[in-house]
Design a protein around this nucleic acid. Structure first.
Lengths: 344, 344
DNA sequence: GTGAAAGCGCTAACAC
DNA sequence: GTGTTAGCGCTTTCAC
């Protein structure tokens, strides 16, 4: 703990009067080294507060022991919970995590992917992504960096999902059964939620309800300070013939809807039914409690990270591994934000 | 985009029939290189999808272009907002972020700090930390890795804060002015919130109100699936003589308090006043809306990252830099979760 | 304008 | 049990 600036293994070796390989051996507890020598080296390492440079280690070992997490927006607690699950499996294994927020920007997403590969991340967890550039993803997954998707499907890439399509079909059907026919759909970028959007359209069609383009809103906002659900709700509720129900892509956006209804002095569910997706812990605390579709975020993170790490190992052993997909069940959580429309 | 496995600069050089230094020159756009040669090399780089190994670059440049973020728990949206602010300043500058969750565990905190230094992070943002091991922090900050604290004070270390002490004094005083004398204080680990705890004690004393140990609760839970505010609230509310008000360390914990009151069929604020800290966006949406103390999380993240990056530059230029502290104002947000106690 | 060579900090054969 | 040496993939003088 004395000298300033960084020590290297060479200096430690000199101070201990041994060669660098001996120091390396005691550092990594491998190879035979005399007990006395070992003690002396360890003593010096301790005194000097020396720690090996992991970049250099990684370079020679061809192993960075890092993975990358690419999420759309860390402000959404759903992603935070996933990350929590990821970390709980990768940290004990000695992996560190890079965190990247795409801000729902497709270019940022690919850009981060490339950067993480350059930084020699051994794997990447692509969470709720847009996937425009499948070619890139496949190329990376084949060559440099294993990739696993969470809440996203890509052909040929391992993933963990819930059954979005079924989950959303159920939700929309339930709204229709309650008597709603004017149902809006709010999301960030349709490319990031194909299945849910498809489910929305299909269920309306199946029930003979026309699809009204004005009821479908996307947000391409990147402004951190406002919940995009708010402005989309304002927009859709100010239509001449506003919807009686809103299916929000996720709970986070639904919070923005709640805020909009307060400002407009609209009551949920009397004037407007609202449904979320994710079932964040806070959602059941809202008044009225939010009707939503439950997803096990933490477990999804764990599962995704496990898949990823297995893929990394297989690749290192050149052991071929079949593609696999982990599917979790969703649960429809009917609470107090849904009711028949007033007209009935 | 053809060959599998990773390309190196040597292979590119061979394919282009030039030396590695020339390839390096075109890669980094520095030094003079013939336009034709340049074009040819770039063409090959493109065809092969080659990208330089940043670990190797970092090793020779002595620059990793990474910073570490050490937060207690990413599930708390307050930290997520800070991270958002950090990222918005460091990403454009070419820095990547490592993310570490200490889970409110002091040992994990120091362990991560050391690991991040080994991984050659150029700096670390220590957010809401416990700081038992100041020696370690100073040593790292002096030698290997610049450190800046957010929502934490350490002697000799740059930091960004709000005036916690004043903020909490005001809040407790307000509760007392409303007529409360049995006020509980819920937190995670007292070491992580010395100022607030001190403010709580001092304000009670100043008003001649005895400090009741049973009203002070810490949580050392690491269980991700339950909000510790919940169990602490249950405990404190089942006391023979329960408090009439709860000051929660932060909004996140206050959500757990809300849940507990629902189960116990207690009404806020009639039966219990609740105050948070942070003013998360969701807090104003709760019913009753949560009274709390506002902190500008995003801006704090930005400011912290700016300080950190300036410190990194100064250190590289061996330019001495005085310690500095950025202080943001808090705002007391009185909403609907506070009222006079029923007894009055 | 371009190449040869040294070296960033470390590990891992391979000798002894 | 320990040391020597050749790299890992890259940048950067320094010659030419």
């Amino acid at each position: 703990m004395k000298k300033s600036g960084k020590m290297t293994i060479v200096q430690i070796a000199e101070m201990a009067g041994v060669s660098v390989s001996t120091v390396s051996r005691v550092l990594n507890h491998k190879g035979n080294v005399d007990a006395d020598t070992c003690a002396r080296v360890e003593q010096i390492i301790f005194e000097q507060g020396y720690a090996p440079n992991r970049l250099a280690q990684g370079l020679v070992r061809q192993r960075s022991k890092t993975i990358a997490l690419i999420v759309p927006d860390i402000s959404n607690p759903f992603f935070a919970d996933i990350i929590h699950g990821v970390e709980d499996v990768c940290t004990p294994l000695g992996y560190s995590m890079y965190l990247c927020n795409s801000n729902f920007d497709h270019d940022r997403e690919s850009h981060f992917l490339v950067e993480m590969a350059e930084r020699q991340a051994e794997g990447a967890l692509l969470i709720s992504a847009f996937l425009q550039n499948q070619e890139l993803i496949h190329q990376l997954n084949r060559n440099s960096m294993s990739i696993v998707c969470i809440q996203t499907q890509i052909e040929g890439i391992d993933c963990v999902n819930t059954d979005d399509y079924a989950g959303l079909c159920h939700s929309i059907q339930r709204l229709i059964d309650l008597g709603h026919r004017r149902i809006a759909f709010l999301c960030m970028d349709k490319r990031g939620c194909r299945m849910r959007f498809q489910a929305y359209c299909d269920t309306l069609k199946k029930n003979g309800i026309p699809i009204v383009p004005e009821y479908i809103r996307e947000s391409v906002e990147t402004n951190h300070s406002e919940n995009p659900g708010y402005s989309m709700a304002r927009a859709v509720l100010s239509l001449p013939c506003p919807p009686t129900a809103i299916q929000s892509l996720n709970d986070h956006l639904a919070f923005g809807v709640y805020r909009a209804t307060q400002e407009l002095h609209l009551r949920i569910p009397q004037d407007l039914s609202v449904v979320g997706y994710d079932d964040l812990p806070i959602s059941s605390l809202l008044r009225p409690a939010l009707t939503t579709i439950h997803q096990p975020a933490y477990s999804m993170g764990e599962a995704g990270c496990e898949l990823l790490i297995k893929n990394i190992s297989s690749k290192r052993n050149a052991a071929p591994r079949e593609r696999r997909e982990v599917l979790f069940a969703t649960r429809y959580m009917e609470r107090d934000s849904t009711a028949p429309p007033r007209e009935l």
